[in-house]
Write a protein that binds this DNA or RNA. Structure first.
Lengths: 338, 338
DNA sequence: AGCGTGGCGGAAAGCGCTTTCCAGCCCAGC
DNA sequence: GCTGGGCTGGAAAGCGCTTTCCGCCACGCT
């Protein structure tokens, strides 16, 4: 079973060169090695099937080839799209991505960051965060500090954290534009299914939407809070129905909530869009196959993941950088004029 | 910026004990340490914010806390569900999962395995594979051999590989049961949208479905091959329509293909289930929100991921083990009696 | 009293690699 | 002819941890 690993020393010995030379040929490229020795080393490495021990390299170099990726839930299309972008860029750079999931547990993010620090991950992409618990927040801040002070880089998607690089979607502007377009369809009364109030994303989208309605001279919407998930949308929609508002159009602050809401409406016999129009935000890939097709604000999710990965991998800068990506309103069958 | 890492030696010195003692307290638990020293060490470690360097530990112990997970496409709900199961178990065991995506590129799996070997990953879960290219196949086999001979464990989901542990869904039985139930609805003529013929999954499901039809005394279905993806299903459905078969019921060998097919049918004005019934396989989570709800064979995807992770993490056995999970036919709105 | 014995702390030898530093060597320049 | 400098190869000192081995001490037994 446990055959011993082929080591650099072995390659060096078989090739009749020193450890240093073998190392120089196979990894560190700063110095020149004569063609003859170089070939000998490469040959023997090939023959022996040598693969450098990444732990040893990390130890010697004091930096690993690991990139962390922290998400709440990898089955959520929003996160898996971002994950796809991050892995794409990381793998292209010859790095390895380690996936951590928080399950939306408050302290988990800090724990994961600590683990990542133990592994000397060279960078981390934090996708999705929250601003609840003050203590957890402080803990996270100190972990971020510890991580970066070791030379690691951190980028956040959508939610800025203490001077880290960030990729921020145009939540406010997107929601505002959406509101205006919906108003242009003739809707007068709106409802918003919002996520937890402590989530920056929720706040921005809600504020943007309200601003858009105000632009159109319309009244503020009925706002119903729910969890930031499909089931949260489902529950919020039921609550909305129970309230018997006159809203003819519903904006769910993200697509998964909108999907849940549509399911709830369907079950209750409320037709979309005939009885009520509905729109979401994000344009997750699964939207392609919903019926009716959901109106939304399109975000280039995978590209956002790529951007975040690039921010975190290209040298980095001293000042926190921000990459803004715009949302694009996409009206589909779930909204109709009123 | 680059503050130096708090090291074990530092903790030991501050606590006034030897390196060995500090190590024993904080990590290796075989030996006893007196309460007094133990407390001193724990205190100082706490105060200094000590986090063991995982690379150094991996090097010294010759085994890391990394678990590999290889999937084709993390945005595919099938894979992300499995990924969720794997990460759940791995994180509970205090391990870290590194995510590799192949993008269905032939040689990529072997490459990833090699990288994982370099990192001394203690185990790998291979979800989704294929049996095409003979050369890539051999390369993969030798990587698996290299990986396991170093003491690493490998488990596959759904597709067995050279004596590795495997979690196999009841593809054949599930498809067969599905065929019988569909036949019981009164359908006589069937079409199957199959994936690439070299995929074991495809073959098994197709064979099972045919067997089920035979059980019911029905003729063999029209079979159309396509890619194992949503777009593959879309294209295959178009091809099916072009053939103008008399099929009243379509079986797509997986759900994403079925979703694509439904999109194609919808676009062509073919109503589901009025004009044609359709069923898939897997029961991916997104199915909850499709209209009409898709009939399928339910597989406990997340649990399969958990099982695979457990297989690979619990000591392991000498003989390859197989965990079978049964599929359960779930008839929904996309199939109706004929 | 003499001598195992068991328990616990510490010294030190690695784990596999990188990288500094030094030793040759060859060539150019005075 | 000798010195200085540019190259290339090798010896060896770590990187931060684990773990073996040894030594010391306190006991308990004959």
């Amino acid at each position: 079973m446990s055959a011993r690993q082929v080591t650099l020393a072995e390659v060096a010995r078989q090739a009749g060169v020193s450890l240093a030379t073998a190392s120089r040929v196979l990894n560190g490229s700063t110095r020149q090695v004569s063609d003859e020795l170089r070939d000998r080393v490469l040959m023997t490495a090939e023959v022996l099937g040598y693969v450098a021990n990444a732990s040893a390299q990390a130890l010697a170099r004091n930096s690993s080839s690991l990139v962390g990726l922290v998400v709440h839930d990898i089955t959520d299309p929003y996160f898996s799209s971002i994950a796809a972008g991050v892995t794409k860029v990381a793998e292209a750079a010859g790095l390895v991505v380690v996936l951590g999931t928080t399950g939306r547990t408050p302290g988990r993010e800090a724990e994961l960051l600590s683990t990542l620090r133990a592994h000397r991950a060279r960078a981390v992409v934090l996708a999705g965060s929250r601003t609840t618990d003050r203590k957890a927040q402080a803990r996270l801040a100190s972990e971020i500090e510890a991580f970066t002070s070791l030379g690691g880089r951190i980028a956040c998607v959508s939610q800025a954290k203490l001077g880290t690089d960030t990729v921020v979607p145009g939540n406010r502007a997107g929601a505002r534009a959406l509101a205006r377009e919906l108003a242009a369809l003739g809707h007068k009364r709106f409802a918003v299914l919002a996520g937890p109030a402590d989530l920056v994303v929720t706040r921005d989208r809600l504020a943007g939407f309200k601003a858009g309605l105000a632009d159109a001279g319309l009244a503020a919407p009925t706002v119903i809070d729910g969890a930031f998930t499909r089931d949260g949308g489902y529950d919020a929609a039921l609550e909305l129905l129970a309230k018997k508002t006159k809203a003819t159009c519903v904006f769910a602050v993200n697509d998964v909530m909108a999907m849940g809401a549509m399911a709830a409406l369907r079950e209750r016999g409320v037709r979309v869009p005939e009885d009520i129009s509905i729109a979401g935000f994000d344009d997750i890939p699964t939207l392609r196959d919903t019926v009716p097709a959901l109106s939304t604000v399109r975000l280039p999710l995978e590209e956002m993941g790529e951007q975040a990965a690039r921010l975190v991998l290209d040298g980095g800068s001293d000042v926190p950088r921000t990459v803004r990506v715009a949302g694009e309103v996409v009206l589909r069958a779930s909204t109709q004029s009123n």
